[in-house]
């Protein structure tokens, strides 16, 4: 295997919810709760090889978006390191900021990710101009070439975001990211807010651009159908931890971790014969609060295979049959697939 492009090494990201006035008074007199800390991402290590697409999958609160933002250089990790081709993504120090231009992000909501008061052309051009990827005098042509690349006419550049539909805006956001000539493209739920018929257009565009430009992708999604379609490898996350990591084909065909299995079973699949025969088998229970995750394996309260050890000891991510999974009973369970 070639040198990885992106390395996430032991990344932890916490968010502290500040106490409100009442709680602060309560904690002064010793009755209140301590500061509430959410471990959005806990000790996650991942690598992405050049030209590979890794998908991060999980439900809300699993930390996939936070991890994506750490990789994108938007959040600085509290622990751990993020490097791109050996160089750090963010500076260190009191106010860390992103120092590489080789990672770019496409955000979920194209209605929020484009500055409503800036012309589309200016939005696309400002990054490349600021980083000397293009001369200001050439920027119009440069922007036009990227707009064409994402299937939009050049005159789009002089208009404002509100004049476009969701699908067109997402194309503009993709053009903005690609105009920075990144090696790694982070796609944070890029099609989740689009209509079904538009989703396919944008997914096809992303696949085409990935191939033509030789991009490496970190693809964040809750939609297992989309993930299966676009990714080479997949990392399943649950409450801030990666619970399973492997090639997409194998993971979908023979999931190891009970959560992965349950997640795959939960997805309603199109029953075209109308039999509705494949009954959905929902996971019991709710997602626990990330403020107070259960001890041991975070999934143990909902897991049908949980044993005493799962309730006390957090499983490590260990290799199992060419993949890695964090489950005490991985070997046993693999035999039952």
């Amino acid at each position: 295997m070639s040198e990885p492009l992106l390395v996430l090494d032991g990344v932890t990201k916490r968010f502290a919810r500040p106490l409100n006035t009442g709680e602060r008074i309560a904690s002064w007199i010793g009755a209140g709760p301590g500061p509430r800390v959410v471990r959005a991402v806990e000790q996650v290590s991942l690598t992405i090889a050049p030209h590979e697409t890794l998908a991060l999958v999980g439900e809300s609160g699993c930390g996939k978006s936070t991890l994506g933002r750490v990789a994108a250089g938007i959040y600085a990790p509290d622990q751990g390191r993020v490097t791109l081709a050996g160089a750090p993504v963010m500076s260190t120090g009191r106010r860390p900021h992103k120092i590489t231009t080789r990672v770019q992000t496409v955000f979920q909501d194209p209605f929020a990710s484009l500055d409503p008061r800036m012309r589309v052309g200016t939005t696309i051009a400002e990054g490349p101009i600021a980083h000397n990827l293009v001369e200001r005098a050439d920027s119009t042509r440069y922007v036009a070439s990227w707009l064409e690349r994402v299937g939009l006419p050049a005159d789009v550049a002089t208009r404002f975001p509100h004049q476009f539909s969701g699908g067109q805006r997402q194309r503009i956001a993709i053009a903005r990211a690609l105009a920075m000539q990144p090696d790694l493209l982070i796609c944070d739920e890029p099609v989740a807010s689009l209509d079904v018929s538009i989703q396919a257009q944008v997914l096809n565009l992303l696949l085409e651009l990935r191939r033509d430009l030789g991009l490496t992708c970190l693809f964040i999604s809750h939609d297992l159908g989309v993930v299966r379609h676009v990714s080479d490898r997949v990392a399943i996350m649950y409450l801030g931890r990666v619970v399973e990591l492997g090639t997409t084909a194998e993971t979908f065909a023979r999931p190891i971790h009970p959560y992965t299995r349950a997640l795959l079973d939960s997805v309603p699949r199109l029953a075209r014969d109308g039999a509705r025969g494949r009954e959905i088998k929902p996971i019991a229970g709710e997602l626990p609060s990330p403020l107070a995750p259960p001890p041991g394996c975070h999934f143990n309260p909902r897991c049908v295979h949980a044993i005493d050890r799962c309730r006390s000891e957090a499983p490590e991510l260990l290799p199992v049959a060419g993949r890695i999974a964090a489950c005490h009973r991985a070997e046993e369970l693999l035999a039952t697939v």
């Binding site: 539909s165 699908g167 067109q168 209509d195 079904v196 018929s197 538009i198 989703q199 396919a200 257009q201 997914l203 096809n204 696949l207 085409e208 939609d223 297992l224 159908g225 989309v226 299966r228 379609h229 676009v230 997409t248 084909a249 699949r269 199109l270 075209r272």
Partner: peptide
Amino acid sequence: KGLLESIPGEAPPGSVLAQIPGAM
């Protein structure tokens, strides 16, 4: 037909999805 074919997960992974051109 277009809607059904544009759902990812039905088509082989990585293939070009059938897409409905344009918008409503």
